[in-house]
């Protein structure tokens, strides 16, 4: 019996002692090269891409509009054959390419979609970030290892050539790694408040609201949206922020549903999933800042009297 045939609870138990793997079909990959690559990306996004040591791994940065709103999170990693890979959301890939091409004016930069040529996997479980030792690396050809966005679960992402897929999966299964379900991955993503494109990452929200301060350099100089983001940060003007929410009862709601408390709109639900481990629903929502009531009776969409727990994210864990 494979792990995928077991319950979510059993899968979750498994990754406490073993390593689970998931093929990330939600990820897109671009190959970018040219002498001005890092200079251009540095001018278009939030993090300091110039002074990062790419031999040490990957760096994430946020592509923002001139109003400081999020287009997508990009992870930049060296492509040993040439240039760099940009890892982004598959659904955002076309927008990302158009955005970069629009701002490529006099620069020596070329960009290609290589999503169909790569396989992106997340490994999650104890010591997963170190378990692919040099010995393993010699048996399988990994294009690059990418720092995981998870904080509370040991995890690493790997990028491999699609031609190596069977070889890599066989190798990982020999190491007793097994596939976990998308539902479990979504539960972990929501618990860890990892923003996802079209849910938490849209052009309605800025990186500070999404608690993505760790992907912003506040002293690197200008980039598109910098003036707005710097002002929001300096004057502490963020009015809402991403928070975890929980409720017990099954209700008919949709993504984007408003949370109403005492007649006032206090938030917007961006993601939710049933969590069988605790027999409740967990979600992410942008909620008015400094909202310090942890348990409320709220109206969500057309559903009244929902007992909702609101959990602000711990700032210290969101920063590098």
């Amino acid at each position: 019996m494979t792990l995928l045939e077991l319950s979510i609870e059993d899968q979750y138990d498994y990754i406490h002692n073993n390593i689970g793997i998931i093929q990330r079909e939600d990820i897109g990959c671009l190959e970018i090269s040219g002498n001005d690559t890092l200079d251009l990306l540095n001018r278009l996004s939030t993090n300091d891409l110039i002074n990062f040591d790419y031999s040490k791994g990957s760096i994430s940065t946020i592509l923002t509009t001139n109003k400081g709103r999020m287009i997508d999170i990009l992870t930049i990693v060296k492509n040993n054959s040439r240039g760099y890979f940009i890892i982004c959301s598959l659904k955002a890939l076309e927008t990302v390419v158009e955005w970069i091409n629009f701002y490529t004016i006099i620069e020596d930069v070329s960009i290609h979609d290589v999503t169909s040529k790569i396989l992106y996997m997340t490994l999650i479980g104890p010591n997963s970030s170190h378990i692919l030792s040099d010995e393993s690396d010699n048996k399988i050809n990994i294009l690059n290892k990418i720092e995981s966005k998870f904080i509370f679960h040991d995890s690493i992402d790997i990028l491999i050539n699609i031609d190596e897929k069977n070889n890599v999966i066989n190798h990982l299964q020999n190491l007793k790694f097994d596939h976990i379900s998308k539902q479990l991955f979504e539960i972990i993503r929501i618990k860890e408040a990892i923003p996802m494109f079209e849910n938490e990452i849209t052009q309605k929200f800025n990186p500070l609201e999404a608690k993505l301060d760790k992907y912003i350099s506040f002293n690197k100089g200008c980039y598109i949206g910098q003036e707005v983001i710097a002002r929001l940060n300096t004057y502490n003007k963020i009015k809402r922020e991403l928070m975890n929410i929980e409720w017990d009862t099954k209700i008919a709601i949709n993504q984007g549903e408003k949370i109403v408390f005492k007649g006032e709109d206090i938030g917007l639900i961006t993601s939710f999933v049933y969590n069988p481990m605790e027999d409740n629903f967990i979600g992410l929502a942008y909620i008015k800042r400094n909202f310090d009531i942890k348990k409320i009776i709220a109206k969500i969409g057309v559903e009244n009297n929902i007992k909702l727990s609101v959990k602000p994210l711990e700032n210290i864990l969101r920063q590098q």
């Binding site: 251009l40 278009l44 001139n66 620069e107 200008c222 980039y223 598109i224």
Partner: peptide, 14 residues
């Protein structure tokens, strides 16, 4: 005289 991507508003003069 030119422009390049970047700067707070999107395009910077060169």
């Amino acid at each position: 005289v030119g422009v390049k991507g970047g700067g707070c508003s999107g395009l910077t003069y060169v």
